[in-house]
Computed example of a mutant assay.
Amino acid sequence: MLSVLRADLRAKQVLYGGDGPPVSLPRALMADGTLAVLLFRCQSALSGLGLAPLALLPHLLNKWFNGCVIGVHARFGPGFVLIHPIGVVINSSVRGGCNVWLESSVVIGDNRGRSPVLGDDIFIGSGAKVIGGLMVGDGARIGANAVVLKDVPAGALAVGVPAACRPGVNEDR
């Protein structure tokens, strides 16, 4: 769990460093969203050990202190960053790869028992909704307030309501 938390903090350092060098570890620790990710990682560890009822404690703390709800069985790889956790809602059956970055008020939800699977190096903008049994390919970007109801190919940019994809987005976050 500690190695995953270190990867999460390194990703946050890169994010906050922008185009320059990564920011300091203390700044990354004090940044918005760090407590939310820490509580999520605790809940995931407890759930992974078969202690799902105990995992509800960090789940509730996250809800109360950070205003976000992440399902107890949701899983994300190293480098998970909640840029601003307020309003984030993630279904318990969501799976995400490495380096998934989420802005505020993102909803990643279930539709008819099926939830999204997110690849690696994903960015989801503020207010976006990703709903149903779809795939978001590696390196994809989802624009603010987009409503994604269909697969997003690797490297694509999804924008609009409902979201349409523009291929070949190779820009940095």
Rank of each mutant, 00 (worst) to 15 (best):
K129W: 01
A146V: 06
L49S: 05
G67H: 02
Q43F: 04
N62A: 08
W64F: 14
G132A: 11
A28P: 05
Y16N: 10
S104L: 11
V81C: 09
I108F: 09
A7V: 06
P153N: 02
V136T: 10
V81P: 04
S104A: 15
K129A: 07
D120F: 02
S24T: 13
P153L: 02
N111I: 13
A45Q: 05
I122M: 15
G33V: 00
L15I: 04
F123R: 08
R141F: 12
D121A: 14
D121P: 06
D110K: 06
I122C: 14
G17I: 07
A7N: 13
G109Y: 12
Q43Y: 03
R114S: 15
Q13K: 06
R75E: 09
V147Y: 00
R95Q: 14
V106H: 15
N145I: 01
R112E: 14
D172H: 04
G79S: 09
A158V: 05
R141P: 06
F65P: 00
K150L: 09
N111V: 14
G17D: 10
P162M: 02
L56P: 00
S47D: 13
L102Q: 11
W64R: 14
N91A: 15
R173E: 06
R95N: 07
L46S: 07
N170E: 00
G96M: 03
E103V: 00
V148T: 03
A31M: 14
L9N: 01
G160V: 00
G127L: 12
V106D: 15
N170Y: 00
S3R: 10
G71D: 12
G77T: 03
G48C: 08
P58I: 01
V37K: 06
V106F: 15
A140Y: 08
L102W: 14
N62I: 02
D151Y: 04
R114D: 14
A146G: 10
V130S: 03
V72I: 14
F123P: 01
L56F: 08
V130C: 08
A11D: 03
S105I: 08
A164P: 00
Q43I: 03
F65V: 06
I122A: 14
F40Q: 11
L46N: 07
N91P: 05
H84R: 06
G67V: 03
P78H: 01
G96T: 04
N111C: 15
R10N: 07
P85M: 06
V23W: 12
G67L: 03
A11L: 04
L5E: 04
D8L: 01
K63I: 02
V14F: 03
K129G: 01
L38S: 10
G119R: 02
V89E: 10
L29Y: 14
L38N: 02
L35E: 12
D19Q: 11
L46E: 08
G139M: 05
V107E: 09
A28Y: 03
L61V: 10
Y16S: 07
L134E: 08
V94E: 13
M30Q: 13
R173N: 04
P26H: 13
V159M: 06
G97V: 09
